[in-house]
Simulated scan of single mutants.
Amino acid sequence: MTTTLQIHHAVELWSATRRYGAGEQAVTALDQVSVGFAPASFTAVMGPSGSGKSTLLHCAAGLDRVTAGRVLIDGVELTPLSEKALTRLRRERVGFVFQAFNLVGALTAEQNVELPLRLAGRRAQRGQVRAMLQEVGLADRAGHRPSELSGGQQQRVAIARALVTRPAVLFADEPTGALDNTASREVLRLLRSAVDRHAQTVVMVTHDPLAAAHADRVLFLADGVIVDELREPRGAEQIAARMAHLETRDV
């Protein structure tokens, strides 16, 4: 199944293909995928292990280059960009949240949130960083280092860091994978709030139907192809049923 693209997407993939290796040993991880992610939308990407969901995220985010096809972020095509220009685009227009948090251990929560601005050569506006920490409920932890924070608090700092530049899109790769249920719910609430309150675009790879139920749309991948889609899912049970069908379709 191929999703029809519309105009004015935060992210677009056109016949995006990613192959690894060459000749008979070549593996196609993404196979001519065309899909768009609209502004102010929350999309979850699901699929069995090896389905290509992480490859889709990495190619869409400019962390990996497609072998064929096109990828655009905020209207800018990635293919012709040099590595320097691609790095600049990611810093200015893309936010990332990973399962492992990826905070800098030597920096405080406030310094971690400010880091993307500093790397982009931008000066934080007065109160901007503290406001982001306030938004994720950690204003009183601004001076704490990651080792002094719980896993859920670290992920909330990572979300504040990803959103401080107001990127065109925030990519989240299994953002609740290392968290307990309470911390997971808070992280998902913050991602949902970023979409609803700030018109942020969020694309999240997850294996968890409960996490995917927070999204407006769920894409299902298998063998590098989008094979199913749910819009406005009616809860985790519906998503889990679709996943179960996907995992048994070739059995």
Rank of each mutant, 00 (worst) to 15 (best):
P80I: 06
I73E: 04
T55R: 14
L56C: 09
G75V: 04
R70I: 03
R88C: 06
P80D: 05
T55W: 07
R88H: 01
E83I: 05
L86V: 07
A85S: 12
L78V: 01
R65N: 12
T87R: 09
P80W: 06
R91N: 05
R65S: 13
H58M: 13
L86A: 07
S54P: 13
L57M: 13
A61G: 11
A61R: 07
T67I: 10
D74C: 00
L89F: 08
E77T: 04
T55D: 10
T67L: 05
G62L: 12
V76T: 00
G75Q: 01
T55G: 06
R65Y: 09
H58S: 13
A68S: 13
V71L: 03
R90S: 02
T87N: 07
L86Y: 10
V76N: 01
L56N: 12
V71W: 04
L78W: 02
G75S: 04
R90W: 03
V66E: 07
A61H: 08
K84W: 14
R88I: 05
P80E: 01
G69A: 05
G69T: 03
A60H: 14
S54E: 13
D64M: 12
A68G: 08
T67Y: 05
G62Q: 14
L86R: 14
D64S: 13
R91I: 08
S54W: 09
E77Q: 08
G69N: 06
S54Y: 13
L86D: 05
G75H: 00
E83T: 13
C59M: 14
E83N: 09
T87M: 14
L81G: 01
L81E: 00
V76E: 01
H58P: 13
C59G: 14
T87P: 10
R70F: 02
V66M: 15
S82P: 09
E77A: 00
L78H: 02
V71S: 02
A68Q: 15
R70H: 12
L86I: 07
T67Q: 09
L72S: 03
D64G: 08
L63S: 09
I73Q: 01
V71C: 04
L72N: 00
R91Q: 13
E77P: 03
R91G: 07
E83V: 04
T87L: 14
S82W: 08
L56R: 12
T87A: 10
A60M: 10
A61T: 11
C59D: 15
G62A: 14
C59R: 12
D74M: 01
R88P: 03
S82L: 07
K84R: 15
S54A: 12
H58R: 15
E77K: 02
D64A: 12
L89I: 04
R65H: 15
V71H: 00
D74N: 02
A60E: 10
L56S: 07
R90M: 06
R70Y: 08
H58I: 13
G69S: 11
D64V: 12
L57A: 06
